[in-house]
Design a protein around this nucleic acid. Structure first.
Length: 363
RNA sequence: GGAGAGGUUCCCGAGUGGUCAAAGGGAACAGACUGUAAAUCUGUCGGCUUAUGCCUUCGGAGGUUCAAAUCCUCCCCUCUCCA
């Protein structure tokens, strides 16, 4: 079961509602990344309290450990990790990109060397879907090949053609009606190839469409340009997902161009590295300036962290390497992101999106 | 009282004549992080300053030498063992 309703629009920005077997998702939505069936440091209850409605988990990582069979035996990913809300599983395609050096790509699939023990694994688009069906996520992603930036057009073209074929194969072997399957558009940073990829993927036909291969080193303006090209060619009635993006500013700009879904490690990873988002800009909690600061991180934030702890204490926890610091920081950053999404959705509904975006840009 | 070991830049600790402002950790300070090989990584870390420069610094004071953290003399202090 999967449904997307477009509720309202403000210029190209959209507000919608996705319905899955495990619940509804208001869009534009931000999905925290829970690679290994956990959003690092948080319990499912804490994740829910940040306002998150859907999580992203990773096929490649879960395939290597604890393994497809085990998760299947434990009743699927939702039950295994005790997250009752919707889950999107990434295909492992990104690992083709990020584990470069440990992979070898052929038309049939990708040879991976496990980053855990060095063992070799061959993953095909069919395998990826098979694993994702075992995991039981509400949204599955096609197995794709995001080319690095920069790449010569010749390589982009070849990679694009391969990705399109892989996605056809993904669609072909998908059998579970309860799980949606999203296609992913590629094409690097070449305008013509972006268009070509988008047309091909739409032609195959999916439940939703992702814009992939961006935010891999190119400039923000180029990333947004490519996003705009893809988004403009995607069907109005299907959700659009910009993979791996991004900063709060990136998200706002992408929503402006018609994107509905996002995921990014930024709020969670930055939290663990002491970089925190506030309504007055980013702050680095390590900085000596916060050593005796009694104020909360963000007086405008209603999260557990801001309601209960001072910057001085958060700095102390971080400097001492205490786990609680990582958790409190993660709770805050995710809440910040989800609050941003709430404000984006409200401003679209209230027809005040551009005003909001402009105000936000001043931070 | 006797025997032995040792005092190095904020801390630990390497360094036994020049290539030493002094390895390596840690701490501290700052920065990065975009479908998570990330509680990670990078830079700075005596001063002046930016030069193949000068000054200060290896417990203290002298000395040997063209040259000393490194060798010699005396002194101060720590630790271990034996009385």
């Amino acid at each position: 079961m999967f449904d997307f309703k477009l509720l309202c629009k403000y210029e190209n920005a959209r507000c919608g509602l996705i319905t899955t077997a495990h619940g509804k998702i208001q869009t534009p939505a931000f999905m925290p990344v829970g690679t290994q069936a956990t959003v690092k440091t948080l319990s499912p209850e804490e994740i829910t309290k940040t306002g998150s409605e859907i999580l992203l988990c990773n096929t490649y990582h879960l395939y290597l450990r604890p393994g497809q069979k085990l998760i299947e035996k434990m009743g699927g990913l939702h039950k295994f990790m005790n997250w009752q809300g919707p889950i999107l599983t990434d295909s492992g395609g990104f690992q083709v990109f990020s584990l470069k050096g440990l992979t070898k790509i052929t038309d049939d699939g990708v040879m991976f060397q496990s980053h855990l023990d060095g063992s070799s694994h061959f993953l095909t688009p069919e395998d990826s879907i098979d694993i994702q069906q075992s995991l039981g996520g509400d949204v599955m992603m096609c197995f794709d090949e995001p080319p690095p930036y920069p790449s010569v057009n010749e390589h982009l073209k070849k990679s694009l053609e391969r990705t399109t074929k892989w996605e056809e194969r993904c669609k072909k072997v998908k059998t579970n009606e309860n799980q949606a399957l999203f296609g992913i558009t590629q094409g690097g940073t070449d305008q013509r190839l972006r268009e070509e990829s988008t047309r091909q993927i739409v032609e195959i036909g999916f439940d939703g469409y992702a814009i992939g291969g961006l935010s891999v080193g190119e400039s923000t303006s180029l990333m947004l340009e490519m996003t705009e090209i893809s988004a403009s060619l995607l069907p109005e009635k299907k959700p659009r997902y910009l993979m791996g993006v991004g900063t709060p500013e990136d998200i706002l700009e992408a929503v402006k161009r018609g994107v509905d879904m996002f995921d990014c490690v930024m709020p969670t990873r930055n939290a663990r590295n002491g970089s925190l988002f506030t309504s007055h800009g980013r702050i680095n909690i390590k900085n000596a300036a916060h050593v005796d600061d009694q104020r909360p991180l963000d007086e405008n934030c209603q999260c557990y962290t801001c309601k209960n702890f001072s910057r001085a204490y958060l700095r102390h926890l971080f400097m001492s390497g205490e786990m609680l610091g990582l958790r409190l920081n993660t709770i805050h950053n995710l809440t910040y992101y989800q609050q941003l999404m709430v404000m984006i959705r409200e401003s679209i509904q209230n027809k005040n999106f551009s005003g909001f975006a402009e105000e936000f840009g001043k931070i």
